[in-house]
Amino acid sequence: MFELYFGEMARWNDGLILTAVMSTLSVVIGFFVALPIALARSKSKGIPGWLALGYVNVFRGVPLLVLMFLIYYGSGQFSRELRSIGLWWFFRDAYYCGLLALVLNTAAYQAEIIRGSLDTIATSVLETNAALNLTRWTSFRRVLLPIAFAKALPPLGNEYILMVKATSLLAIITVFDLMGQARMIFSETFDLRVYYIAAAHYLVLVLLIEWVLRRVEARIKWMA
């Protein structure tokens, strides 16, 4: 067990870093993609609302693995067209494709989380903002968004943990995250303990994130 870990330390660390980077990037980018979708879901009754609902239903319905296959392998069917509009460098790369799939997926879930917390803000807050003569934009940026964020933090933290786990699917489209490195080392050694080492990594990583999130939540609980 130890030689499988210490002998391959560099690869385990590379995998760990890539898993952390990919999951963090996808959650952060996904948050900014989710914001307008959540707003449209919460405030718009017209076409934007319908579009946002469609986005959420589609990207929550497709298994992430299938979405990754669709973007990474599916784009290959249009390689000539993508080359001619100068986007091939993006779709050629498993890292970019994987990140895109993760972002599209998490944005759908985060949009629903943010919408939920936007909807629970009391009408009195809106009335107060109007009484203070805040413009709608200022009211959203300085009052509603911070409250919504504080309310949404526990489920957003959960989503972060789900994304750490979801990055493991990147290994299937040849990205060397933690799972990818484990698969690689397993294919060289055929030693099942490799997967147990990967499992220990994920366990420690998730418990660590949970611990940090609990502390952050405790600090901003007054706002929610």
Binding site: V66, F69, S75, Q77
Partner: peptide, 20 residues
């Protein structure tokens, strides 16, 4: 068949339908 977009797109639609 070498038609990845067609097949993955199709099963994506099937999954969305099942979930809906």
């Amino acid at each position: 068949t070498r038609q990845p977009f067609l097949f993955f797109g199709l099963i994506a639609i099937i999954y969305v339908l099942l979930v809906t």
